[in-house]
Amino acid sequence: MKGALEGIRVVDLTRVLAGPYATMILGDLGADVIKVEAPGGSDDTRFWGPPFQNGMSAYYAAVNRNKRSITINLKEEKGKETIRQLVKTADVFIHNFKTGTMERLGLGYDQLSLINPKLIYCSITGFGETGPYHHLAGYDYIIQAMSGWMSINGTEQSGPLKVGVAVTDIFTGLYAAIAVQAAVIAREKTGRGQKIDLSLFDCAISTLVNVASNYLMSGEVPKPLGNDHPNIVPYSTYEASDGLFVVAVGNDRQFQALCELLEDQTIGADERFRTNASRVAHRHELNGRLNKELKKKTRAEWQQLFEQKGIPCGPVYTIHEAFQHPQTLARDMIVNMEHPYVGTLKLVGSPLKFSETAVSYRLFPPLAGEHNDHISPLNDMEE
């Protein structure tokens, strides 16, 4: 079966995480992604490690499959002209250079759309192309700090903490993949391409979702709650006799079902815990009492009991435990790709499962310039 984006060509001038994650998704869906770097390789993640496997960094391998690689010197007119020629038959052009850089190179949207009016041009920057910070570069850590994300992670004792994965890059990569596909659909109706102005900062603000809505509605500045939920109780991490697990009670019925399993029946009878709103108001006392009760059994014992009652819960796994879990394996979330120089690469599989246009793993993460002899304006444009 052909991929959903079979026949879509993407000229990819992105590096590090947000852009490469977006273009990997497009590549997984069948698009022909041409990764463009400076001679020698200018994607910094090629050198971010350890770990390395025969010279390839795990970071680079994570987000660069299903791409072909060419190297071009954009400081030379010949290199810029090569890009212009590639753009003639491209559907998508995507970059994550600082605002204004591509325009100075003669590769901005206004310039390239004259060559190909159907071109979808996606610009990924730290703060977007307007506003007082439009000129600044964007780094996930900085964006987590400035968007408020760090302020709601951790506890009042720990102070602000960043998320363990560069989530604002990932959010932006996902939004970029969505935006590009939406623009492809719009082009089918209008016959014209368009420009997408996407920023890490905007995407981080957007993905605050209910926390942002809480603030906008109440005017109260959210405090860091650790593993607690700001709107629901009990919805946190608790201690069983053999380790930590999460209980996610979403309504009053589930809470009463939980209370029926506890030795201390006074918890369910306490008026302060009857409704979610009152539980939120008395979260510290309730969580303390629940922890005392939940320490009396193992995680597996609680999970069996909770599942019988329809109470959502799950153990806190390490990354190793998560990747060894039968659910991970059953869903093909680990894939092996054979690389002629690197050997067998273990990569995270795509979560996208289609009944007709299945995701495919066609191309291993390329070496810098690996396809220079196969992709050029002279020999590739009519493929």
Results as ranks from 00 to 15, higher is better:
G164R: 13
V233S: 13
Q181A: 02
L200Y: 05
N214T: 11
S199H: 13
I170P: 06
A176I: 00
V221F: 08
Y238C: 03
V180G: 01
Y235K: 03
I170K: 03
N231F: 09
S199I: 11
T168E: 10
Y238S: 02
A204C: 07
Q194G: 06
I178N: 00
M217H: 15
R187A: 05
L174E: 02
V167G: 02
E188Q: 15
N231D: 11
Q194V: 09
P222I: 08
K223Q: 10
Y175P: 01
I232F: 13
T190C: 13
A176S: 10
A212R: 05
K223S: 10
D197G: 07
S206Q: 12
I205T: 12
V211L: 11
F171V: 00
L216C: 07
F201D: 02
L225P: 11
T207H: 15
P222V: 07
R187W: 09
K189I: 12
A212Y: 04
R187Y: 12
V221C: 04
T168Y: 09
P224G: 05
Y215D: 09
M217E: 14
E220R: 14
K189D: 10
I205L: 15
P224M: 06
A177Y: 02
Y235N: 04
K189C: 03
Y238R: 01
M217Q: 14
A179R: 00
S218A: 07
S236D: 12
V233N: 06
L208Q: 15
S236T: 11
A212T: 09
V184E: 01
